Simulated scan of single mutants.
Amino acid sequence: MQRRHFIAGGLSAAALPSLSFAQGIEKPKVTIAVGGKNLFYYLPLTIAEQLGYFKAEGLDVNIVDFAGGSRALQAVVGGSADVVSGAFEHTINMQFKGQPMRAFVLQGAAPQIVLGVNPKTMPNFKSVADLKGKKIGVTAPGSSTNVLANYVLAKAGLKPSDVSFVGVGAANGAVAAMRAGQIDAISNLDPVITLLQRSGDLKIVTDTRKVAEAEQVFGGPMPAGCLYAPTAFTDRNPNTAQALTNAMVRANKWIQQAGPGEIIRVVPESYLLGDRAVYIDGFLASKQAMSVDGSFPAKGAETAFKALASVDSKLAEAKLDLNAVYTNAFVQKANAKYPKG
């Protein structure tokens, strides 16, 4: 019965004006938690907000920014936010912990995370094994930047305990920590990475802004930024989840057609970190890793599980339902409603 009602609701929403659609939304006021909103990883979220796509769907969205994805997840677990704009792999960890989450629209087709070393403190760096005993800056401990670093370390025979992870955020603090030599390596995203690279303060080791390199690193498609929420949220509020998905799919498609100049006109000035040229370079480097239409790849959950399992033996032994951590149902309807964005 609920499924029939959901399908009927989706069809009527596509046919009627946004005002009528808004009346069918179970939760018009939605709080989204995000960890590092200025990053290109979350650009579709900012575009949907800035261009009024959420409002067009009848939503009043409040976006709360945190230092990293793990902090954003804590906000939803604690009940102060409804939805996370964050890394896909958290849905797998949360099912393992008995708190099921479901991802319902993709923002990133690849993680866009770059692991690089500090040329000042590690001038003789030759391989990942050299990071043993060193300090690695991540956006926040437990976040996707930490997961990627763990994974790359594991492939080089190192355990997470062989290094020290330091939370440096996703903006100027991360840049300052590298330039001051407070950390020996960094796992972060654009525009932070491009800013450090341009000034000679970073030597890239692994670059998952390149979809091909990301698939090589992880052994398959690795879904990245997405909107996810407790499964109870999407079950109880299907029209709300659909409205959020519609806005994000429109944003994904707008980004694919936009030039750097258009992006700069839309995002807040603070995102540029004081250098428009660096921001443009960062956008061009990251654009290829952004989702075209919000769909999750069929083997994405399996790839993410393998990455997490490689550094967590208990998770590796767990029998999880990987089909339950995501759905493309909302995305399919959104693409039918907005075929061109």
Rank of each mutant, 00 (worst) to 15 (best):
G219H: 05
G219V: 02
G220T: 03
G220E: 04
G220H: 01
G220Y: 01
M222P: 15
M222I: 15
M222T: 13
P223V: 01
A224Q: 03
G225A: 06
L227K: 08
Y228R: 09
P230T: 15
P230Y: 14
T231K: 14
A232N: 13
A232F: 07
F233N: 01
T234V: 14
D235S: 13
D235Q: 14
D235K: 13
R236V: 10
N237H: 15
N237Q: 10
P238L: 02
N239A: 14
N239M: 15
T240F: 12
T240W: 10
T240V: 11
A241P: 00
A243C: 09
A243E: 08
A243W: 08
L244G: 10
L244A: 08
L244C: 04
T245S: 06
T245N: 04
A247G: 02
A247W: 06
M248S: 15
V249R: 04
V249E: 03
V249I: 05
R250W: 12
R250K: 15
N252I: 02
K253H: 09
K253D: 06
K253M: 07
I255C: 14
Q256Y: 07
Q257H: 13
Q257L: 13
A258R: 11
A258M: 13
G259M: 09
P260N: 02
P260L: 03
P260W: 10
P260D: 05
G261D: 14
E262A: 11
E262Y: 03
E262N: 08
E262M: 05
I263C: 04
I264N: 04
R265Y: 06
R265L: 09
R265I: 05
V266F: 00
V267G: 08
P268M: 01
E269M: 15
E269W: 15
S270I: 15
Y271M: 10
L272W: 14
L273S: 08
L273M: 12
L273Q: 12
G274L: 11
D275T: 13
R276M: 09
R276L: 10
V278Y: 11
V278G: 12
Y279C: 11
I280L: 08
D281P: 03
F283V: 01
F283E: 02
S286N: 11
S286Y: 08
S286W: 03
K287C: 00
K287E: 01
A289Q: 07
M290E: 07
S291T: 00
S291G: 00
V292I: 11
V292R: 12
G294H: 04
G294R: 03
S295T: 14
F296L: 03
P297V: 00
P297A: 02
G300W: 06
G300Q: 06
A301V: 07
E302S: 13
E302C: 09
T303H: 10
F305Q: 06
L308V: 04
L308F: 07
L308Y: 10
S310C: 11
V311K: 13
S313G: 08
S313T: 10
K314T: 15
A316Y: 01
K319L: 03
D321V: 00
D321H: 05
